[in-house]
Simulated assay, not measured.
Amino acid sequence: MKKSELVAALAYHAESSKVEAERFLDAFGKTIHAEILKAEKIVIPEVGTFQLSHREARKGRNPATGEEIQIAARNSVTFKATKSLQEAVNP
């Protein structure tokens, strides 16, 4: 689904204009970014939870050469779907 399709769907379900739906979607994205940067957990009812997680440094292997490499530590965003969403996807 492209952004324009999501905006149209939001506008339809919220019974609002596409301009208002796009403004909401942009604000929603900015809010998610800001809260994740503060290391906050974001719970979206009926959808799931976004959370910042830390991945430690580890050793890996270059699949092309077989050479052992060091993979740096980094932060990652994880998403866990709610039970109701999981059940809808896997009836």
Rank of each mutant, 00 (worst) to 15 (best):
A8C: 12
N90E: 05
K3L: 10
A88Q: 06
I42A: 00
T65I: 03
H54V: 13
I44D: 00
E5M: 13
E56Y: 06
A57L: 08
L6M: 13
A64D: 10
E68V: 14
L37Y: 07
G60R: 14
A57Q: 15
F24I: 06
L6E: 04
H13M: 13
L37M: 07
P63Y: 11
H33Q: 15
A21E: 07
Q86M: 14
R58Q: 10
L25I: 01
A9W: 02
S53A: 15
Q70G: 04
K41T: 11
K41V: 03
E87Q: 15
S16D: 14
S53L: 03
L25R: 02
F50G: 03
A8S: 13
V7M: 10
L52M: 13
I36E: 01
K80Y: 02
V77Q: 01
H13K: 15
Y12E: 13
K3Y: 06
I44L: 14
R58N: 08
T49G: 00
E20P: 09
I32T: 01
I36T: 01
T49M: 06
V43M: 01
N62V: 13
K59T: 11
A57R: 06
L25Q: 06
E67Y: 05
A9F: 12
D26L: 09
E56W: 05
E46T: 15
T82K: 00
T78P: 03
E20K: 14
A34H: 09
Q70I: 09
N90W: 04
T31D: 11
T82F: 00
L85Q: 08
A34L: 09
S53T: 08
A72V: 05
N62Y: 07
F50A: 00
K38F: 00
G66D: 04
A14Y: 11
L6H: 09
A73M: 01
T78Y: 02
E56Q: 10
K80G: 01
V19K: 14
P91E: 15
N62M: 08
S4G: 03
S17H: 11
I42E: 00
G29Q: 07
A11V: 06
T31N: 10
V47F: 07
N62H: 03
A11T: 03
V19L: 11
A73D: 01
F50P: 00
A81R: 00
M1D: 10
E35G: 02
L6Y: 04
K2F: 08
S76K: 13
P91V: 13
F79N: 00
T31G: 06
S17T: 10
